[in-house]
Amino acid sequence: MSFMPKNKEILDKQNVILSFLQMRFCENYNYVILNEVRCSRPCVANLDGMNTGFSRSLCSLRMTNSKTLALLRMKKSIFGRINAISTTLLILVFLALSTGLFSKPRSVGDSTFSFTAELGLGYNTDLNSLLTEIQLQNFSPSLRILWKPDHRLNIGLQTARINIMDIQKNEPHSEFGSADIRASLKGYPALLIINMNLYGIGIYGGLGTTYVTSAIEAIGTKVSVNNWYYTYYLGIGYNYFFSDSFGIGFEADVYTFSLMQIRSGGLKLKLNYDFLNW
């Protein structure tokens, strides 16, 4: 992305905006205002020689319409005279005002702290044998608790019951004659999850361990064993909150169990519930 504005004339006519543009985090002139205040990173602005810190929560407010521009322009005349502290206060007031006017519940709702529970139910399958041994009964529930602070980066814990595979097959030419095997592999992960949301699209990454159980019944003997495996998790999904507390979503995810070299891919529907806000 280029820092070069596409329309410098507009900038020159609007000194206030220009001073915003001097913030280092501005990436694209189309977002002259938007980017100044929506940038997803904590940033520092240099206004009248004073370094002003912006937390990302303030920066995340929507300010794209003409009212926002008008408010900025109104402050243009006093911008040169007020001291740095006043400038900061004005901006904070402005951002707070914008929050009330233009933000929607949940869609930009990272200005408060909350805990969200995401209950998922979906279908998982071993990606290594995706085309050969699809097991439609492999429905897997999952539970994720996310702490959503006033930053875009959320953190939480996740567990699930993953039906990694469930097969039944026959080996007709074994040295013991025709032999049948029934085997299932289930995983119970405990993962530390990090999550970022953008435009309702959430990306999830996780690390942790999975308690894997294997049950095999073959040639007259049942064997149940278990083991722990380091596990990586990646997910991408969409979340939509239809009220202050409830939302729904869907997610595609992949668990990778180390050493077993199994990747279990899945699709799931989610019910999201903000059970604690402050």
Binding site: A179, L185, I216, T221
Partner: peptide, 28 residues
């Protein structure tokens, strides 16, 4: 010590060699 995909092709054998009978290992 444990069966794993570095050494074998089957995903569902994850225990020790001593967890399985000879016939199970040879057949599957």
């Amino acid at each position: 010590e444990y069966m794993n995909k570095r050494l074998i092709n089957e995903d569902y054998f994850i225990g020790k060699v001593s967890d399985y009978t000879y016939a199970q290992l040879r057949a599957f």
